[in-house]
Design a protein around this nucleic acid. Structure first.
Lengths: 211, 211
DNA sequence: TCAGATGCAATGCAGTTGTATTGCAACGAG
DNA sequence: CTCGTTGCAATACAACTGCATTGCATCTGA
């Protein structure tokens, strides 16, 4: 296995590099490994993430993982960044699927539903995100990125709400996070979660019509 | 060290036991160890929980931990149960501090505030709970207790809401959970979280007065 | 062509993990 | 006073951890 299928897209943003006597795309390799890490974390938990497990899941040697991440923490941090980027990508993609300027309520519902772990595909991402949440609850230093994301989202949500209230925006975001947690824990079904979300939007938009 | 300071309260509820040629209270020892486990988990993360670490934190030998929990998973499960019981105790205590039949809104605010990790004392419990959440997201089998708790809480909350709507109750509970997560992650301050909670109660109770 | 850099595999190593086993002191029942 | 049970400590052990080191094939720029 491991047929030479690399050399695909070369340097996504290789800047200020003059002498490069190599061939492989570092960023690509790293995301490949990070993907494997997330697969391991998704179905065995973060504590099962080790250099060798990740290497096995990625189908590469343990030495290669070490080659691309000098330390395990570096690998974890990179994977965390990938999770964040994926979340953001899902949001922007979901928003792009709505036309030019959609109704605020539909916009919020679409965005939040895109971020909830409602199906098996997003469930794995959610599990990893939750694991990282617990991980960073102990290491507050490595959560600055998450913090920025959250603040950005709250202000955006608030700006779309009819009231424009920041507290209401923060509440809606927290409700989303809680729904995600309960979905992952199996406490809520997808229907229950969406029902709660719609009920909340009813409250915020003052209407009683369904989405 | 380890002066013989046991033999403290004997058998909390030793029933149907005829021959007991021993002296220590099993349950007490187990909760003592579970406390140490939670201390370790709170400030080093769940992955730092090992027999020896817990034993050291409890000030006992590793052999004793093994004596009271035949396997690590058994210890984890017990600690999880303790966390759940503490949460429930905090709720009932907070409710008891309110008089006979308090206003629904005040009742909900008090109950939810009691469950949020707002100060350093409850912060540790929250960290442990979050870690366990991530833990059980991978092992769904050991989360049946949590599921029951959640369902119980949702129905109770819904019964207190003016609308009596189950979806609104589920939403409020999810909002609480999300606030807890963001508090632990440092994304929200205590003021922001309480502000969001009050805003939500404003929505649910249709008033604009503060708590 | 030929250093030198790079990609990557293999191995070694000290430390930690969960668990099984052993040994011994203290106790209760007979 | 035994004797078996229990409480607990100590140790052994194989598996695993993250990391450092070594070795080699391949490519690059001169």
């Amino acid at each position: 296995m491991t047929a030479p299928r690399w050399r695909s897209l070369r340097a996504t943003h290789c800047e200020t590099i003059e002498a490069m006597p190599k061939k492989v795309d570092h960023q690509e390799r790293r995301t490949l490994i990070a993907d494997a890490l997330m697969r391991v974390a998704a179905d065995q938990g973060l504590e099962a993430v080790s250099l060798r497990h990740v290497a096995a899941a990625a189908g590469v040697s343990a030495g290669m993982v070490q080659h691309y991440f000098r330390t395990k923490d570096e690998m974890m941090a990179f994977a965390m960044a990938v999770v964040r980027e994926r979340g953001q990508a899902r949001v922007t993609e979901a928003l792009a699927r709505l036309g030019e300027n959609p109704a605020p309520r539909l916009l919020l519902r679409t965005m939040i539903a895109a971020l909830l772990p409602l199906d098996d595909r997003t469930r794995d991402d959610g599990r990893v995100a939750l694991a990282f949440l617990a991980y960073t609850a102990v290491r507050p230093a490595s959560a600055t990125g998450l913090r920025a994301d959250t603040m950005q989202l709250t202000s955006f949500i608030a700006s779309v709400l009819p009231s424009g209230d920041t507290a209401e925006g923060a509440g809606l975001l927290a409700l989303m996070e809680g729904l995600g947690v309960y979905l992952l824990g199996g406490q809520y079904t997808a229907e229950q979660a969406l029902g709660a979300l719609d009920a909340q939007l009813d409250l915020l938009f003052g209407s009683s019509a369904a989405a």
